[in-house]
Every structure is written in structure tokens, then in C-alpha cells.
Amino acid sequence: MTSSSASVTIDTKWFQASDGTSIFTRTWIPSTEPKIVLCHLHGLGEHSGRYTPIFTQYAQHGIKSYSFDQRGFGETGRKSGTLGYNDGIKRVYADVDELLARVKSEHPELPIVLSGQSMGGGLALGYVVSKVTQSKPVDLAGIIAMSPFILLPKETAPDPFTYWGGRILAPIVPSLPIKKVLDIRSISRVESVRVDYLNDPLNHQYISVGTGNDILSNGDNLHKSGYQHLHIPLCMAHGEADIITSAPATKDFFEKAPSQTKVIKLIPDAVHELHNDLCREDVIDFYTKFMLGLAAN
């Protein structure tokens, strides 16, 4: 299915992963020849369709964007009936491999950037780190980590009983769902964004103990040693009032990462979804300039 506007055509289709799972994908195609390609991983509890506003703006600059509803989320989760469970982080990385292979086959001549928001930001960083530690090639022009899940802020971190309980249960019943109540004020200071989020039928507040354990373990690894394997161009952004993921952890990762080309934007008073917050235009311009700079090299 496709829909079009003056600057972008949105193509949606189902893709069959190598294990037979149906994955729902979206592609935002600019009206002009693309200069660079973006592959994006969405955050916890949401879906790829929420990025149409930002990817439409990217399209106006010749950036073609691909994304998919991860296992357990969006249309993919609805079809499988397993909300909040991603089949394990190795399977997520395999899905990313398959998406990138599709993109490379369609645009072998264009640079590719991997991006992710929140959970997706941590997974994007973890994906690159896993490739390097396995001595596998990283065929990416750069990476954008948007409010990435590296660590939880101290004020919202789980108590030790909950933390270790989840760690123990994860290998036994990884698909066991837990409903996590979201404070809607924590995603954006814009009231219309909050209302749209709550009214979106594809959003949900479930996470399985296995997925939660994977996210925490991946973040711990990024914080303790993973940063040393990040050599490709790096762009990071975080709101300093974010209570969902830790801005200080993002700053620490950025400072330690050995990337020769790296930029960061820390925004006072901004909350979790910078691309949907009061600083929206500023941060979208920041990401856009990073990608166009890579395209020009």
C-alpha cells in the first residue's frame, strides 16, 4: 500500500523474515533522487508509523527512510499476538541484518545510516558493537542514537527485587508480559503529542521479561565497555529532563566512544521524544545536517 504527498511517498508492506515471521515495514520515499538512506529502529511500546512527520521532513532533503514494526510491537506484534516480546536480541539483530540487506540491494551506491529512538537507540548501538566484537564488517556510514536506552535514570530505576526477579525469570519465561504504566508527560511537553500517543491503537504498554532483560543487559554492556567498539561516525541527542532513559549515560558514552567524527546535542528541560518535543525543529535539523554531511563525503 502506498500514500503520497508533494514531498514523500509512503510505502507499506509485509516482509517475511528468514524464520518465517511476518514483519510490517514502512518506507518514506522522497520525490527526488535520494542522497542517503536511513534505517530506523523505533522505541518501546510504539511503532514505525509514529515517525512519519520527521521522515517526511527528511524526505524534503533527499533522505529516504526505512523502518519496521519490531517483533512484539505495532502491526507486527498485533499480527503475532505477542505484545512486548521481541524473540530475543539476537533475532532483533538478524531482522536488522535483513532490512539492511534489502536496502543495500535497492541502493548499492548510497551511504546508509542506522538510527534508533530509546530502546531502538540502544539496540542500534548494540548492533554495531556486536558486529565489531564478532569481527564482522559494519557497512554503515554512521549511526544516530536518539535518547538511547543505555541506563535508566536513578529516579525511575527498578528496585533490586524487581530487577533481579526479572533477570531470574527471563530465561525461564521470556515471553511473560508485564504492563508498565507510562507517565504520558514524560514523552513530550506538547499536549497534542501526548493525546495522539494515548489515542494511537498501535501503541501499548507491555514488555516481556525477556525483552526487558535484553534491553538492560545491552545497556549495561554499552555503558561498561561497548563504547570502545564504536568507531563509525556518531550522532547522539538527549533531553536533560528525560526520566525514561539516562542523559548522563548518553553523554558518558559519547565522550568515551573513539569515533573520529561525532556530534552530540544535550537539551536542557527537554524530555524523552526530542523529535516530538518543543525543540523538535532544532533537533531534526541537527540529525539532518549530520546525514547530509555524510552524504557529501
Rank of each mutant, 00 (worst) to 15 (best):
D87L: 13
I54V: 15
V96K: 00
H61Q: 15
F55G: 12
Y58K: 11
R50K: 08
G72N: 01
R71Y: 04
L99R: 08
P111L: 05
T82P: 15
I89C: 13
G49M: 02
K90V: 15
Y93H: 12
G49L: 11
I63Y: 01
E46F: 07
R71L: 11
K90M: 13
T56K: 10
R78W: 09
Y51R: 12
A101L: 15
K104N: 13
G88H: 14
S105T: 07
Y58C: 12
Q60T: 09
D95L: 00
L100G: 01
D97L: 02
E46V: 11
G72F: 01
L99G: 10
I54K: 05
D97Y: 00
D95S: 01
D87S: 11
I89M: 12
G84N: 03
K90T: 14
G74S: 09
G88E: 13
D95W: 00
K79S: 13
V92P: 09
S67Y: 02
G49Y: 06
S105H: 13
E98D: 07
Q57S: 13
E109L: 13
N86V: 12
R91T: 14
D69S: 07
Q57V: 10
V92S: 10
S65A: 10
T56E: 09
V96I: 08
G62Y: 04
T76P: 05
E98H: 02
L99E: 05
T56S: 03
I54F: 08
S65N: 08
L100V: 14
E109M: 10
R91Y: 14
G77I: 05
Y58F: 10
K90Q: 15
Q57K: 12
Y85R: 07
G45F: 01
P111Y: 03
P108G: 03
S48E: 10
H47L: 08
K64W: 04
D69G: 01
K79A: 12
Q60L: 07
R91S: 12
K64F: 02
T52V: 12
L110K: 02
S67Q: 04
T76C: 14
A101P: 04
E75Q: 15
D97G: 07
P111H: 07
A101T: 06
K64S: 01
H47T: 04
R78P: 12
G88I: 06
P53W: 02
P53N: 07
V103Q: 00
F73C: 15
F55W: 00
